[in-house]
Design a protein around this nucleic acid. Structure first.
Lengths: 190, 190
DNA sequence: TAATTCATTGAGTAATTACTCAATGAATAT
DNA sequence: ATATTCATTGAGTAATTACTCAATGAATTA
């Protein structure tokens, strides 16, 4: 069974190289030749592993979607705890799992990337995190744990702050990762 | 002088359409045909106004660079005041001047966009805002206005949070804009 | 009015690039 | 040992796309 192992290993190499290039240069600007080059294989061979460039992208999105589900298995927590755990989970991932961090970036970017088929768009988060958390924000405002203000604006600020930080750190893994509690202070009532 | 006025007006239309598409789809994915279409002109005519797609991009970057200089005429303020003014200025721009907001997004994205010539790269911010503000963070930590923690991580958190929020709002102008003070609370000492 | 400038178009071109495919040889199975 | 599978290559193709250019007619100038 050596062949199957090797094949899977090669597949993962392509996925990693593709992910890195996609989040750095964007989907459209990433050439299949670039990906093949990064892995150290001929361009032709790439298509032995993934039928099309878009299917490579799709495979990454599916992986990301699965990971994201896990991150958001955080229901049932008190409002402020939910946001604390969310920030902590995502930023910890970024520090310890660069691949996961890049997937997070890819996932959020995918919404805006053009030139993607309908099939791909099915895998996109429709900013459910924000929708869901708007309710939580309102609860938190009632129990006094979250500051006053427009709940949508608060949710946007929280998630987009994490998004901005995650994008930057995913591209510059050498930089120190901010403390998740700092981000929670965007919405926390003091 | 009607001709010159019309020409300048048309030029601005192209710049606006290009900017919107560039920040939505990215430079590489934006077709010159898309831009022409958005303005309502033939693709050929576009090249009567801008020699190349890249020179259109460059023109936008130059505009952005000028605007940015103004935003960062904020030296001489106390550390925490600097960050308060920075957050306020940028987020106010986003609310009131969509064009300026999109320029801000473009500017920050440009660093990562591939397929750009050396000429373009001269116009890119080298994250001077972060470099400069690391010193300010340290001062603020001494005078007690800014919380303890790695200054680079704090500066990253602050600017990347603004970046993430700005990107999102520039693309969804209908959403409520977060209060700048919330963002400053990322770094503020309480 | 006549001459001239120039905005505008649409068809065409050269370059790029995602993807194909026939050929090869090394690993695996028999 | 022989046959077979399949990873791998590199040359080739069709499609896309940035950009060109000759032609046109409307606005401007003389």
């Amino acid at each position: 069974m050596k062949r199957a192992e090797q094949k899977e290993k090669r597949r993962q190499e392509i996925l990693a190289a593709g992910l890195d290039l996609f989040i750095r240069k964007g989907y459209a600007a990433t050439r299949t030749a670039d990906v093949a080059n990064a892995v150290g294989m001929s361009e032709g061979l790439l298509f032995h592993y993934f039928e099309t460039k878009e299917k490579l992208y799709l495979a990454l999105l599916q992986t990301a979607a699965n990971g994201k589900d896990n991150v958001f298995e955080l229901k049932g927590l008190s409002p402020i705890k939910f946001f604390e755990e969310t920030a902590k989970t995502i930023l910890n991932y970024i520090a310890k799992e660069p691949f996961a961090a890049k997937l997070f970036v890819l996932m959020n970017r995918a919404q805006y990337e053009a030139a993607l088929s309908e099939q791909v768009k099915e895998y996109l988060m429709r900013r459910k995190d924000i929708d869901y958390s708007v309710n939580l924000i309102q609860e938190g405002q009632k129990d006094g744990s979250i500051r006053a203000g427009d709940p949508v604006a608060l949710a946007t600020a929280f998630f987009m702050a994490i998004q901005g930080i995650a994008e930057h750190i995913a591209r510059h893994p050498e930089l120190p990762v901010p403390n998740p509690e700092w981000i929670v202070d965007i919405i926390r009532n003091k």
